[in-house]
Amino acid sequence: GIPATNLSRVAGLEKQLAIELKVKQGAENMIQTYSNGSTKDRKLLLTAQQMLQDSKTKIDIIRMQLRRALQ
Rank of each mutant, 00 (worst) to 15 (best):
L44P: 04
M30A: 08
R42G: 09
E20R: 01
T5V: 09
G37T: 05
I19G: 03
G12T: 14
A27V: 13
N6H: 10
I31K: 01
L46W: 06
I61P: 00
T47N: 11
L21S: 02
R68W: 10
I31S: 01
T5K: 12
R68H: 10
L66M: 04
R9H: 11
L52A: 03
G26M: 15
Q65D: 05
S8W: 02
E20N: 03
Y34Q: 04
A48E: 01
L7I: 09
P3E: 11
E28S: 02
I19P: 00
Q16E: 08
L21W: 05
T57W: 06
N6F: 01
R9N: 08
K56N: 09
N36M: 05
A69E: 10
T47E: 14
Q32H: 10
Q16I: 07
L46H: 08
D60L: 11
L13M: 04
S8F: 03
K22C: 14
I2T: 10
L17T: 00
S35Y: 13
E20G: 01
A48P: 00
M64S: 10
D41I: 02
R63S: 05
R9V: 12
D54C: 09
G12K: 15
R42M: 13
Q49W: 12
V23W: 03
K43T: 11
I59F: 00
K56Y: 04
Q25E: 12
G1L: 08
E20Y: 12
P3M: 06
T39V: 09
T5L: 13
V10I: 15
M51V: 07
G37R: 03
S55D: 00
R9P: 05
G37W: 01
Q71A: 09
S55Q: 05
K58W: 03
K56G: 03
R63A: 04
G12C: 15
L17V: 01
N6K: 07
T57S: 07
Q32M: 09
K24F: 08
Q16D: 04
K40V: 12
S38V: 11
L44V: 03
A27D: 00
D54R: 11
M30S: 03
K43E: 13
A11R: 09
L44Q: 08
T57Y: 12
D41R: 02
P3T: 06
Q53R: 11
M51G: 01
T33S: 12
I61Y: 11
D60E: 13
L17G: 00
L70R: 08
E14S: 07
S8L: 09
Q53M: 09
Q49V: 13
Q71H: 09
A11D: 08
T5A: 11
D41Q: 04
N29S: 10
Q16L: 11
Q32V: 10
D54V: 09
L66Y: 01
E14C: 15
N29H: 14
S35I: 13
E20I: 07
Q50R: 15
I19R: 14
T33I: 15
D54I: 07
I31V: 08
M51A: 08
R42N: 14
I2G: 12
Y34K: 03
